[in-house]
Amino acid sequence: MIRFKVNGVERQWNGSAEMPLLWYLRDELGLTGAKFGCGVALCGACTVHQNGHAVRSCVVAMQQVAGAEIVTIEGLAGGDGDLHPVQKAWIEHNVPQCGYCQAGQIMQAAALLAESPHPKDEEILGAMAGNICRCGAYQRILAAVRTAAGSSKDRAGEIPPPQYGAPGARAAAGRRRAANHSADHAASIGGSDGEVERAGMVAGAPARAAGGRQ
């Protein structure tokens, strides 16, 4: 029997301890906000918070969530229905196109800002590098994270070219390793791109994401 909380509600699970959290959330609980996009922590569509950290729920086994507090996109807004600042920024910037990846993007960004309330562009890109958007809404994602972080550099048409150098170089190194990435490794760092994820997201993360439901 595995006990844990999802969006503040006590849950228990008697089924497969190996089953990824993603399928428990989607198929068992009917919380379908977290999406399936790769199954191996390469795309970030399934991102949820585990004790405040962004994790790829497609590679987090149920046995790993024992005692944990899980927050999904459905639980990100406050109990009064007030949207999380990241959700508000996403709406303000009209980020989504098809929208499929956006729950994962939002959860990733919320975890970043909980840890680092005023990230530099480089840090934003590093933290968001594990979340693929096939529609290519990245420009608006960057702008929305800046807005949520209270930065003023987000006016349409005035987005300065971001600093590519450091995160790009680290990402390339991460990709070279990606072929040998075990699912466990990916799960522990939450993405395809270990160094980037660690640098931008996990290290020193607080116990819960800002605005996450208790």
């Binding site: 199954g39 390469l42 968001m128 960057l142 990709r175 395809s192």
Partner: peptide
């Protein structure tokens, strides 16, 4: 998967369009 069929990630994408 996305490791062998790559598409732009945010830091690889054009961000000033």
């Amino acid at each position: 998967n996305w490791d062998t069929y790559r598409v732009c990630r945010i830091h690889e994408a054009p961000l000033d369009v």
